[in-house]
Write a protein that binds this DNA or RNA. Structure first.
Lengths: 217, 217
DNA sequence: TGTACATCAGTGAACGCGCGTTCACTGATGTAC
DNA sequence: TGTACATCAGTGAACGCGCGTTCACTGATGTAC
């Protein structure tokens, strides 16, 4: 009722949008030195859109922010650059969530690994869009899929150290870390892809999995 | 050099396409009762396209077959129906590959499980496009993602039976089967998403994984 | 044996959509004089 | 204290693209008489 029919690309002006927030108000033109404010708003909106829909279009972001589509080019050379910025953000947040979980778990190595593993799958299942964006191949044409896809290893490496600490010497910590990572990824990804399968309780599943992988009943 | 400039949607006519095959020749109009020939060709082309690119467009399929885009509507009500036909095909092929591997493995349960697991990840890594199409969520809007996404359970169930046979009584076969499935999926999916990670040898990985999960050194 | 006609297998133009990107531009803000 | 002007932050029209789907059609094949 309140909204006018918006005919074209034109961003909403003084109209509150449907959830009651007023991006139009936020969208007062930045002052001289504050050009980066728009950049932050763009990344924020893109982040939410990618999380919600699993894909990102420049025009959708511009619409969300309440700005002309072209304005995005003031801060990003193209769509890929924006996507990269968003993913970087996700990885930082994800890594922080895992570290926090491990910190809260105390000193016992196995407990720490379990906490980290549970935090991993929790984050993945609670933020399927983000997780998808971070860890799902888009089947890029060969050539492109080399460098950029290596992001997120730090997360793995932190977990690998944890695993190494949780096990006796003489065991293949590298292989175990790989088992753990792939298993956790599989849990998250399959739950997203097959939401109707009768999956077990997540905590039980992680306890059972880590127990078996690390050789503890 | 041989190809003329193709200006519009118009399918290639008497011209051999770049790999030397001549779809134009195949595309002689079907005889009276043989209307289903085109259907088979469409599914075949769609199957190859989806495997190669990870996505499917009606117009691309039509181009590949050498037929007007509208001709697809003679056999499928819309794009989704075609995609479904292709996925059904993939699942049948995938299931057959696993069964065949188990058959060749003989009678020893653990050997059978290992063979099945290895066949699973082999199929997945060798046909990333097909696997992606079968098992990767497309983040459909809620409402759509209920029924259709349950396809492929038979494959899981065959594996679950195998796992149950491979373990002693009193253990939680269901949980173990879930561990195995998610782990295998994770291996396939992460290798596709992170091709530059130093992954271990696939056979060693599967041996190690199944050993740990099923409690055998 | 010849021919009119129904049917089957397919065509081709057109639609409206959202997209990424380009280009020339505008108008408020701050600063130099 | 006033004003010309550069610069910064952003706009808006336009482009060409591939897409799914619709619609009215065409023309070869087989069959009934």
């Amino acid at each position: 009722m309140v909204k006018e029919a918006v005919v074209r690309d034109e961003p909403a002006r003084q109209v509150a949008d449907e959830d009651g927030s007023t991006p139009a108000e936020r969208r007062r033109r930045a002052r001289r030195g504050e050009g980066d404010r728009l950049r932050a708003e763009i990344v924020e909106a893109a982040s939410e859109l990618l999380a919600a829909t699993g894909e990102l279009s420049l025009r959708a972001v511009a619409r969300e922010v309440g700005v002309a589509a072209t304005s995005i080019y003031l801060h990003f050379r193209n769509l890929d650059e924006l996507v990269l910025a968003v993913k970087t953000r996700y990885f930082a947040e994800f890594g922080k969530a895992l570290d926090e979980a491990a910190r809260l778990a105390g000193d016992e190595p196995l407990v720490r690994v379990r906490a980290r593993a549970l935090a991993y799958v929790r984050y993945g299942t609670e933020h399927p869009g983000r997780y998808h964006a971070m860890f799902t191949s888009e089947m890029l044409p060969p050539g492109m899929r080399s460098t950029a896809h290596f992001a997120g290893v730090e997360v793995f490496e932190a977990a690998a150290d944890e695993v190494a600490a949780a096990m006796g010497p003489g065991e293949d910590a590298g292989m175990l870390a790989v088992h753990l990572w792939t298993a956790l990824h599989g849990i998250v990804a399959l739950r997203a892809a097959r939401p109707n399968f009768p999956w077990p309780d997540l905590t039980r599943e992680i306890d059972s999995l880590t127990g078996r992988l690390l050789g503890i009943g």
